[in-house]
């Protein structure tokens, strides 16, 4: 489904601020996988998602989606395959447009825009049905501007928008981080439901280790632009947050001692 090989990204290349954000990342994700990604700030999680979706282009490496090389495809041309939900609830929707207009845009993702009315009666009915499944009462607010919705409502709308056009890949970038705990809980369960309904291949970045283990079938820990470890199957099922942290510090220490050896040699 998603195949990433030898991916490297350097910001401010050649300047004093040069920053290697991703170092030779290799990642293969099978169809239907729900992968959670954890790692400290600056580990390269968001950059990885941004490169997959085409916001940035890599300095080295190759990205394939469903066997198609998309490495040099601009963001708007990758959009048909990729649905995204961002950390900032304001980022995924247009606030001066109405709920139904935002949904209409999402439904047309990757399709040619034409000179015909964007919201028809038939579409409005379809949106109404979809929104009522969220259980937030948004189906009664189709013609309100999105700017009037709360952060949680906007995020729920964004999830619906991200999945409306049936993407091959769903990218979630800490999409519950800016919400209050209760709303975050709601959104994460909503996410899970939507994903399992359509068996969507998903990458979810999260700060919450518990969440990372609870949801999905595979977990990746990133650190300093590298994939530190990658657990799935039985090993992951038995894992607790403590195991995760132990594994992290063990690998980190080994890595540190390796570096030390390099320096002292």
């Amino acid at each position: 489904m998603l195949k990433i090989t030898h991916l490297t990204k350097i910001f401010f290349k050649g300047s004093v601020n040069e920053n290697i954000v991703l170092r030779n990342i290799n990642l293969f994700i099978s169809p239907g996988d729900f992968v959670t990604i954890i790692g400290s700030n600056g580990a390269g999680k968001t950059t990885l998602l941004n490169i997959i979706s085409g916001v940035f282009f890599p300095d080295q490496g190759k990205i394939e989606i469903d066997g198609k090389d998309v490495t040099n495809l601009p963001e708007y041309k990758r959009a048909p395959f990729i649905g995204r939900v961002f950390q900032n609830p304001l980022q995924g929707t247009a606030s001066s447009l109405t709920v139904e207009e935002n949904l209409a845009i999402a439904e047309l993702r990757g399709k040619r825009k034409r000179l015909r009315l964007a919201v028809t009666r038939r579409k409005r009915k379809e949106f109404e049905e979809r929104l009522s499944l969220l259980g937030l009462g948004l189906e009664k607010r189709l013609q309100e501007r999105v700017g009037l919705l709360s952060g949680g409502q906007r995020q729920a709308l964004t999830i619906l928008m991200a999945t409306l056009a049936k993407p091959k890949l769903l990218l979630l970038d800490e999409h519950t981080a800016n919400l209050d705990p209760k709303t975050a809980q709601k959104i994460i369960f909503l996410t899970k439901r939507v994903i399992s309904e359509v068996h969507l291949t998903t990458l979810m970045v999260t700060h919450n280790m518990e969440e990372a283990l609870k949801f999905g079938n595979r977990t990746i820990m990133m650190n300093e632009g590298k994939i530190l470890f990658d657990v799935s199957g039985e090993e992951r099922k038995k894992m607790s947050v403590k195991d995760l942290l132990d594994k992290f510090s063990k690998l980190k220490k080994e890595k540190l001692s390796e570096d030390k050896m390099l320096l002292t040699r």
Binding site: S53, E75, Y76, A79, T93, I105, L108, M161
Partner: peptide, 8 residues
């Protein structure tokens, strides 16, 4: 947002 929605 609109670029992520596939609009040039």
């Amino acid at each position: 947002m609109i670029r992520a929605e596939g609009v040039n």
